[in-house]
Amino acid sequence: MVTVHLQDDSVVFTVEGWHKLWSFRSELRVPRSHIKGVRRDPAAAAHLAGIRAAGTYVPGLITAGTFFLDNVPDHKPTFLDVQHPDNTLVVDLKAEEFNRLIIEVADPEAVIALLVKEII
């Protein structure tokens, strides 16, 4: 699971608990201006096609880490951390290491409200 909060001009995505080990990341910082959009998408982490660069993939259990997905046109990696798909958000990025983040959060609606407010 990932927690999301604002710090100065950045959005901080903090990977919690054992997910740090599974995803090989503890935190991602993204300038607010680099977030193109955010949406709830419970199916985003299902049926992934591509290459796992660093992380964990156990179908039906957890998907965490850096993945190069086949359906990404710019060939940039995607960061994933999803165990319970119902709480999945997709955060689209520009000018970042990752083209998008596919993450599980405790309260998807609250995170969407926080990020949409910052995008506008």
Rank of each mutant, 00 (worst) to 15 (best):
M1P: 14
T3Q: 06
T3L: 02
V4T: 09
Q7A: 08
S10M: 13
S10H: 13
V11L: 12
V11Y: 04
V12L: 08
V12P: 03
F13S: 07
V15C: 04
V15M: 04
E16P: 02
E16T: 12
E16M: 10
G17Q: 05
W18L: 10
W18M: 09
W18H: 09
W18V: 10
H19N: 11
H19L: 08
K20M: 11
K20W: 02
W22Y: 14
S23D: 04
F24V: 06
E27F: 00
E27R: 09
E27C: 05
E27V: 05
E27A: 04
L28Y: 01
R29V: 08
R29S: 12
V30Q: 01
V30G: 00
V30F: 00
V30I: 15
P31G: 00
P31Y: 01
R32I: 15
S33Q: 13
H34N: 15
I35C: 05
K36A: 13
K36W: 03
G37W: 05
G37A: 12
G37P: 05
R39F: 03
R39I: 06
R40L: 05
D41T: 06
A43T: 14
A44P: 01
A44I: 05
A45K: 03
A46W: 06
A46N: 08
H47Y: 12
A49Y: 08
A49N: 11
G50L: 04
G50C: 07
I51M: 11
R52E: 06
A54W: 07
T56I: 08
T56D: 08
T56A: 07
P59E: 07
P59W: 06
L61G: 02
L61D: 13
L61C: 05
I62G: 06
I62Q: 09
I62H: 05
A64C: 04
A64S: 04
T66Y: 03
T66P: 00
T66F: 02
T66I: 12
F67P: 00
D70W: 04
D70P: 02
N71V: 03
V72R: 09
P73Q: 12
P73N: 09
D74H: 13
D74A: 12
K76F: 03
P77E: 10
T78D: 02
T78N: 02
T78V: 15
F79E: 11
F79S: 08
F79G: 07
L80Y: 07
D81C: 15
V82L: 05
V82S: 07
Q83F: 12
H84Q: 14
H84V: 15
H84I: 14
P85S: 13
P85H: 10
P85E: 11
D86M: 09
D86A: 15
N87R: 14
L89D: 00
V90R: 00
V90E: 00
V91K: 00
D92F: 01
D92W: 01
L93V: 03
K94P: 03
K94Q: 15
K94T: 15
A95E: 15
A95I: 04
E96N: 13
N99K: 10
N99H: 10
L101K: 02
I102N: 00
E104G: 05
A106H: 09
A106N: 11
A106P: 01
D107W: 06
D107A: 13
D107G: 02
P108W: 06
P108D: 10
P108G: 09
E109M: 08
A110L: 10
I112M: 14
I112H: 04
A113F: 02
A113T: 12
L115A: 07
L115H: 08
L115V: 04
V116F: 02
K117H: 13
I119D: 10
